[in-house]
Computed example of a mutant assay.
Amino acid sequence: MTHDDELSGTLLAEIGAMIARILEKYGLGDVRVEMTTAFHDDLEMESIDLVTLGGMLAERYGENVSLAEFLAEKDLTEVIALTVGDIVAFVRSRLGAPAGVD
């Protein structure tokens, strides 16, 4: 297992736990989250849930991980198709970037 695979696995577990906390309010905290899990189709998360997730990501990984900026670069079709793997890849890329650099 490479360091990137290990980091992705760790991020998937941490982000999956964040998603589970968000979904608990709908009685869905035990949902299985994988890289291919789609926020819209599989989890039925709404935009307010993504805002909540964005806050959790920034709190855990720092302000350099801005989900709002990431989503602003996408059109509606891309946001609807967003998967957990997309978020994992985004966080992984931002963790290696210096603060304030896009």
Rank of each mutant, 00 (worst) to 15 (best):
M1N: 10
M1G: 15
H3L: 13
D4T: 12
D4C: 07
D5N: 14
D5F: 10
D5L: 12
L7D: 05
L7I: 12
S8M: 07
G9P: 03
G9D: 14
L11V: 09
L11G: 06
L12G: 05
A13T: 15
E14L: 11
I15L: 08
I15D: 04
A17P: 01
A17W: 06
A17C: 06
I19G: 04
I19L: 15
R21N: 14
R21E: 15
R21F: 02
I22A: 06
K25Q: 13
Y26I: 01
G27W: 12
G27R: 13
L28Y: 06
G29R: 09
G29T: 03
G29I: 03
R32V: 12
E34K: 09
M35R: 11
M35A: 15
T36F: 01
F39Y: 15
F39Q: 06
F39K: 07
H40N: 12
H40T: 14
H40A: 10
D41Q: 10
D41M: 04
D42S: 05
M45S: 01
M45L: 13
I48F: 11
L50C: 09
V51K: 02
G54H: 08
M56T: 02
M56W: 05
M56F: 07
M56V: 01
L57H: 06
L57E: 03
A58Y: 00
R60E: 13
R60A: 11
G62W: 09
N64E: 07
V65N: 06
S66G: 07
S66L: 02
L67R: 06
F70T: 02
A72E: 11
A72W: 00
A72G: 13
E73C: 02
K74T: 02
K74Q: 12
D75R: 10
D75H: 11
L76V: 11
E78Q: 15
L82W: 06
T83W: 00
T83Y: 02
T83C: 04
V84D: 05
V84T: 13
D86P: 05
D86E: 09
I87N: 03
I87Q: 00
I87K: 03
V88H: 05
V88T: 10
A89T: 11
F90E: 09
F90Y: 15
R92K: 14
R94F: 03
L95G: 08
G96D: 09
G96R: 10
G96W: 01
A99Y: 08
G100S: 08
V101L: 13
D102T: 13
